[in-house]
Every structure is written in structure tokens, then in C-alpha cells.
Computed example of a mutant assay.
Amino acid sequence: MPRLRAILTSPLLHFFALGALAFGYYGLENPASEQPPPENVLRLSETDAQRLALDFVTTRHRAPDPEELRAMIRDWAIEEASVREALALGLDQGDTMIRNRLRNKIEFLAEAPAAALTPDDATLEAYYRANAARFGQDAALSFAQVLLPANTGPAEVQAVKAKLEQGADPAGLNASSLLPPKVEAMAAPAVERVFGQGFGGEVAALPLARWSGPVHSGFGTHLVRLEGRQEGILPPLEKVRARVLADWRADQALKMREAHIANLLRRYTLELPEISDEARP
């Protein structure tokens, strides 16, 4: 009995009941016809009615009251009438935004079936291995660094290195730099983003627990002490299965779109205007 009471008092049940009554009344007032409506008649289809109801409950998380329902129908009627007037005036012709929107809809229809595809385990495993770089855990580096002043000569470099080897604090020697004097387990790609292309690779190749350098970055020249190096790993498929499946479906969607485009273009003959040599880039 409590379960039945919960169902009967559910707002969702009230929403569907209200929707059924409202759109049922609309159906009685506007009986369906096999013939298309005259140009001056705005006929709300069952599909559009369901869309209006679904949009409301999705955004408001409740059923519309009668006044809101009338406002929804009126807004739909304004939109439908405005679209018809715009089409009659040819306002859709040559409009880049409308053309792009129509193209996007066609491409979406072409790739939408990919969302429902489920590969077998062997297919997903093969895809995972072939794209291991996407899903692996990046190598990580821990190191201390000192950014040397510009135009530091070899003798000065050795003097700074000697201070560091004797226990000088890298932070004190990095006073004029905004770069972190110590980095703990930073992913190798992040090291590259912070310090510049190639810096992470050079640091990873240094000997452990020893001040080395100079090492060059996008900021200048550094002395670096490599404290730790964690190798990248590829986790078991089951730990990242959802992500791998999402990527596989995205790749399938792209293939479907490209196949659709190729098939679409085969149905047409492309005719181009002649371009004089002077107009060629």
C-alpha cells in the first residue's frame, strides 16, 4: 500500500496525466488528418507536443501548470509561424549560420548510430593496445632546479653548482625566478608545458641525486638535480574500460561521418568556375 501511495502521489505521474489531458483536448479540437494542414493552419503534432513537455520537465523538474502549458503552446506557435514567414521570404538562402546548422544536423544523423555500438572484448582490447598512448599513465619526474642568470659564464655555473653540492637551498638561489625550485612527481607532459619543449626529456636522462647541467628550457639555463623518475604504465583495461569504450565510439562516429561524406559527394558532380592564373594564390 505505501508503494502504491508513492506512485499515486508522484509528480511525474501528475505531469503525464496533465500532459495527456491537455494534448488529448488539443487532439479533439484539432482532429488528425491524413492531409497536410493548410498553409494558414498551425498544427501541433504529437511528436512536437511530447518534445515541449519533455523540455519543460527536464529544465524545471516538475510538471507545467495550465497557464505554463498555454504559454508553451503559444511560444511554439510563434516559432512555427516565424519560421514559415522566414522561409517564404527566402531568409534561409545564403545564410552561413543556417547552412552550417543543417550540415551539422546531417553529420550528426550520420554518426549517431555509433553511440549504441558495443564492441566485443577482443575488438576493444585491440583498440586499447593500438592507442595505448591515450590511456597510459604518464611518466613523472621529481627534481630541484635553479634558473641561472642570463649570460652566466662557465666559471659562474661551476661556482653555483659547488654551492648546491655543499647544501645550498635552491629556493634561495631562485629568488628572482617565478619557477618552482622543487617539483614533486610532475607528469612529463606537464613538465614540458611549464618549462618548454624538450626540457622534460633532458631532465629524465640525468643521473639521480646529483646536480647536473646546464639544462636549457624556454626560460634560460638551469642546474637540475633529478630526485626521482617514475616510468609510465598502462593500467589494466578494466580500470579504464568506460573511457576506452567512449573513445572507441567516438572514433567509430568519425569513421561513419567520413563514410557518409564520401558517399554523399559521390552522388554529385562538382563543377567549379575557371580561375585565372592571376587569381591563384
Results as ranks from 00 to 15, higher is better:
Arg134Gly: 00
Phe135Asn: 01
Ala132Leu: 05
Thr152Pro: 06
Ala139Ile: 02
Pro149Lys: 02
Ile98Phe: 14
Ala133Met: 03
Ala110Trp: 06
Asp120Glu: 11
Leu147Glu: 14
Met97Asp: 09
Ile106Lys: 15
Ala114Pro: 09
Arg134Trp: 05
Pro154Ala: 08
Thr152Tyr: 06
Asp121His: 13
Phe143Ala: 08
Asp92Glu: 10
Lys105Arg: 14
Thr123Ala: 15
Ala132Glu: 13
Leu102Gly: 07
Phe135Gly: 05
Leu102Cys: 06
Ser142Tyr: 01
Asn104Lys: 14
Ala133Ile: 03
Asn104Gly: 14
Glu111Met: 04
Ala110Gly: 05
Thr123Met: 12
Leu109Asp: 14
Ala114Ser: 12
Leu109Ser: 12
Glu125Cys: 00
Gly153Ser: 14
Gly153Tyr: 07
Leu91Lys: 02
Leu148Gln: 01
Pro119Met: 11
Met97Tyr: 10
Arg101Ser: 09
Ala110Phe: 08
Asp92Gly: 11
Ile98Glu: 09
Asp92Met: 01
Ala112Thr: 00
Ala155Arg: 14
Gln145Gly: 03
Asp95Met: 12
Gln137Lys: 02
Asn151Cys: 03
Asn100Gln: 12
Leu147Arg: 15
Arg103Thr: 08
Glu107Pro: 00
Ala144Pro: 02
Val146Ala: 09
Glu125Arg: 12
Glu111Ile: 00
Ala114Phe: 06
Ile98Pro: 03
Tyr128Ile: 07
